[in-house]
Nucleic acid binder design. Structure first.
Lengths: 229, 229
DNA sequence: TTATTATGACTGACCGGTCAGTCAATAGAT
DNA sequence: ATCTATTGACTGACCGGTCAGTCATAATAA
């Protein structure tokens, strides 16, 4: 047995190691190393996105992620505690930037129709035509088995977006631009977006779907001027 | 999906096995045996539903399915060729009965509003408050990695429902009960249903959603009388 | 500046546990 | 007795996670 292995590592050593990985980059680093380190992390996340989004969490092999990232498997564990952490960090990294953008949009005070158009545009450009579409699909697929992840997504993303929408819709409703009912269910506005995301993953090849047109139609129907009740 | 783990089995063996399993029951059977056989199959499917829908396809262990069904693991293989076949049969068995019901509904010629109410009711009673909700969730989650399954679902379920809806909407539009736009995107009608299914799996515990109310609101908004263009 | 030492990022062979699928043995029906 | 259905121990591919060892780079000394 010529491969001696160290069997002992004090609890504190283990803890230190765990803490390190949590930070997301191996130890401290300066200059060249720091840059390289960040690049590596990104490469791993990019590879993970590719693999996770085509194979799903369970069927993804970390060996494949490593190969795709041009890195040894062990390296992944220098940047992420384990497979699950990698997965969650990936989703976090992809979705977090969106929130600010959307909240900002809700703050602007424009006629709802214009806002609606902007929202549709934002959705198509920043989500539907983007890898974020796949991230949301993953969220839907794997979320039920990752309660922590679902909670993060709800608290940091959804709840905020819904709050912004509600505020916006309430203002519009007060002006009579929008029926009151919508304020209770902002989800209705986003519903076709969800349909589009799911459809694209399952049925696009049988029957392509014009997302923009569908969302436009939906908005037109919801916001069309009505006869008085 | 998943890697084939069996490496040896002559083509003819495979065929024989396939032929038998395809029938869904071991050999021919009559009387008592036939009944027992059908019951077994059902027990396995029921157990599979339970396991697959909480753990997902990949993480479900056939050992667990067997235990839950009160059967030895090998027995599963008497009724289904492999894990994937079991999964697909399950979805097939759960969704197929729906199609007829929905198509029948589309054939009736009633004012859209009444039809809409019936459709909402059907959705809530036959899907949302049922295990079928979970089956559809599984379809969404696992579909992208089971092209065959997605195709079956599209051809046998979705396409038919959409066709029925389109016919119905076209009639209604001709009568001026419904805006023309809807005919192009029957998906819009179903969108909140999808939202409800996804929501229930991910966020119910943070923020319950009144599906009936949401769908009612949506329908009211879509079908409300409009000012003339 | 150049030489020497220290660091820690990176590697990849390896380990241990897991689980789909098999099949010889057994129970049960006819 | 014969034939079928059922069992569950077993196999082996597979993969997440580990860690001793390597070497480029950074820190320090000369």
């Amino acid at each position: 047995m010529s491969r001696p292995r160290t069997v002992n590592a004090t609890p504190s050593e283990r803890l230190a190691s765990a803490r390190r990985s949590a930070s997301g980059a191996p130890q401290r680093a300066t200059g060249k190393r720091k840059a390289r380190s960040a690049a590596r992390r990104d490469a791993i996340l990019a590879a993970a996105l590719e693999e996770f989004s085509t194979r799903g969490f369970g069927a993804t092999r970390l060996d494949d992620v490593a190969r795709r990232a041009g890195v040894a498997k062990g390296t992944i564990y220098l940047y992420f505690r384990d497979k699950e952490t990698l997965f969650q960090e990936l989703i976090r990294a992809m979705l977090t930037p969106l929130v600010g953008t959307i909240e900002a949009m809700g703050a602007v005070d424009l006629p709802v129709r214009q806002l609606a158009d902007r929202i549709v545009d934002l959705f198509v450009r920043e989500i539907y035509e983007t890898r974020r579409k796949d991230v949301i699909r993953m969220m839907i697929s794997e979320g039920p088995r990752f309660p922590k992840l679902a909670e993060f997504y709800y608290r940091e993303v959804l709840a905020r977006i819904i709050a912004a929408m509600r505020a916006l819709l309430a203002r519009a409703a007060a002006r009579g631009e929008v029926p009151e009912g919508l304020v209770d269910f902002p989800q209705i506005i986003a519903a076709p977006g969800l349909v589009a995301i799911v459809w694209s993953g399952l049925f696009e090849r049988f029957e392509p779907l014009d997302v923009r047109a569908m969302m436009k139609t939906h908005i037109d129907l919801l916001f069309a001027p009505r006869k008085a009740a």
